[in-house]
């Protein structure tokens, strides 16, 4: 595994906010995520975890430094290029408001593939259904996501993040909003997909017990990575 190229490499990423008064949120981050890793990212509130995740996820551009995903440098890509790279390699799981309330569970899971290709296919729908069954929601395929419980919604989000088989899934406090039992179910799901499909996960969490169960823990403090392993 050590010789395989990293799924994601972050080099000297700096992020400033503000025009007049500049606040430096990230002070030069370096990290590498290898294929099949499940990594926890922890740190106090306001330390820049979400900011870093957004930059890795190509939702935000770093002030300096670069992000390389699956061997492709994202620096200098235009909006369309970023969207394409994002669609191909990344899956997202957010803490709340992660699903589109106007759509059903199946539609939400199909969304990434549908949005990328522009037209729905039978295969897309089938894969979405299979994934929902895999996360234990076979009986809620056509339910509106607003009719699902928080834990169920988060499981739909996990299914959606995996729908187009991304190499890397970025999860920003995926269990932060759930009770202990639901949180462990969702984590167990991520772990299962990580084992079965070799998908890399970067999971932001405040929950020490969840961090413990990851392969590696990165701690971010004042915009710097402080510890590894």
């Amino acid at each position: 595994m050590a010789d395989a190229p990293p799924v994601c490499r972050v080099e000297g990423v700096v992020k400033d906010y503000g025009d007049g008064v500049v606040t430096r949120v990230l002070h030069g981050i370096d990290l590498e995520l290898r294929a099949g890793e499940l990594v926890a990212l922890i740190g106090p509130s306001g330390s820049g975890k979400s900011t870093l995740l957004n930059i890795i996820g190509l939702l935000d551009r770093p002030t300096a430094g670069r992000v390389v995903l699956g061997g492709r440098d994202a620096t200098g890509l235009d909006d369309a290029g970023l969207t394409a790279l994002r669609g191909r390699t990344l899956g997202f799981i957010f803490q709340f408001h992660h699903l589109l309330p106007a759509f059903t569970a199946t539609e939400n899971v199909m969304l990434p593939a549908y949005a990328e290709q522009g037209f729905p296919t039978a295969a897309m729908r089938q894969r979405a259904r299979a994934l929902l069954e895999a996360v234990g929601l076979g009986h809620k395929l056509d339910a509106r996501v607003t009719e699902l419980s928080g834990g169920q919604q988060q499981r739909v989000a996990v299914a959606r993040a995996l729908a187009h088989e991304p190499r890397l899934v970025l999860a920003d406090e995926p269990t932060g909003n759930l009770d202990t039992e639901a949180a462990h179910e969702v984590f167990a799901l991520m772990r299962r997909f990580n084992r079965e499909r070799h998908t890399t996960f970067l999971v932001v969490t405040h929950d020490g017990r969840i961090a413990e169960r990851c392969d590696r823990v990165l701690e971010i403090l004042d915009g710097r990575i402080r510890a590894g392993e």
Partner: peptide, 11 residues
Amino acid sequence: ILRAVGTSSGR
């Protein structure tokens, strides 16, 4: 969210 899951701004 649409943008995050790969919807282009043109769409």
